[in-house]
Amino acid sequence: MKLLRERTEKQRLGESLIIQTSVRLMVPFVQLFGLYVIVHGHYSPGGGFQGGVILGSSFVMLALAFDQKSSLRLMSERANAILGNTGAIIFVGVGALCAICGGLFLDYSALDVLIPLGPVEWRSFGIFLVEVGVGLAVMSIMVSLFWDLGSAGKMDEGL
């Protein structure tokens, strides 16, 4: 038991090989499932928030199994902030565009003035647009919360 502890302390990068391999195997499928949940949000259970949490948790898994630096290499802090702000702008922009086109805030059927698809089609498509925005914003907030709390704001070593 003492030997195992020494070996773990000597090992520099994160957890054991088994965990790293299976995380490397699972992360692409987790991200694919997150996108599926976001895109299918208006037909089936799920939606922007849940899909964003799944997408963010894939990066949290990488940071837990390897270390924070390798997670930051795959998704830089700058790209993360840009994606999150883009999501918020998409959400508010779609809502404001509806108000500008003559409806209420987030009343998607008003967007029929811009591209005539019919109000029913626009209600379905507008929810999709808003959910993409929500998903991006939630993913960015999840990942940056974990990075900041896990390294006490220093962004170096992590847990």
Binding site: M1, T8, E15, S16, I18, I19, S22, M26, F29
Partner: peptide, 22 residues
């Protein structure tokens, strides 16, 4: 398939952590 990959890994992580904690 996902359970087949994830569940043994979780068991392995828990056991190893318990061993290291003594």
């Amino acid at each position: 398939v996902f359970i087949y990959v994830a569940s043994p890994t979780a068991t392995h992580a828990l056991t190893k952590t318990a061993l290291i904690l003594g």
